[in-house]
Amino acid sequence: MTDSKTAAAIDSAAAEGRPAFIGYLPAGFPDKETSIAAAIELVRNGADVIEIGVPYSDPVMDGPVIQQATTEVLARGFRIAEVFEIVEAVTQATDAAVLVMTYYNIIDRMGPAEFARRLAEAGGAGAITPDLIPDEAEEWIAAVDAHGLDRVFLAAPTSTPQRLARIAEASRGFVYGVSLMGVTGAREAVSEAAERVVRGAKEAGAQRVCVGLGVSTRAHVEEIGAYADGVIVGTALVAALRDGGPQAVGRIAAELTGREI
């Protein structure tokens, strides 16, 4: 048993004999209502966990597709309050665990305690922080713990066993296994590093490891699902939303989760 909302979602997928499906969408892209509708479509078509990405001026881990989407959102005058509104709307409309994915300065500016309070108030499950390593996370961990939220840290192909142990220890919900050395974006093949990261993180004590970066086809999902607890897809969904709206997001989610061929 776990009191982590995200871990519970991953475990119930496991109980059905499949990896959890985790879908990323940028907050407010292309506008607030559409991004909520797209997240709901994602859940209807098999997503167990939703990541709502916070548009940020300096997204160093993002490739061109997500950068372009978030730049557009920022250009229309996006404010952070919108993130909590979206989290609340998706949480109310679905039973998925809703995480926020944000670069750390957004949290730092609001103050970790206030950010965690507002996220919990909106019904969010926790946050993924791609540019925060456990070494710098003391204040953040204290803040999310005060509200029982999940805190997801990244593990990389280059992380040493010592670092993996620290990452596993600091994470709650799951460990985000980075499948390759690079930024977000669809890739032809899943790097062989992904399985190594999952094995290393588990050996270091992680209970659940989900894999993201470069995952864009049903074949990738099946391959990763054989050894990971969950599969994270972002760019492929963002491209679908850009080109075909929420319906297209639903279609690709159904395809990726194997509900439709």
Binding site: V60, M61, Y104, N105, P130, D131, L132, I133, D135, E136, F153, L154, A155, A156, P157, T158, S159, T160, R163, I167, V178, M181
Partner: peptide
């Protein structure tokens, strides 16, 4: 100061 960086770069 510190290291507010993705984990991928920590080893380097």
């Amino acid at each position: 100061g510190g290291r507010w960086m993705p984990e991928s770069l920590v080893a380097a």
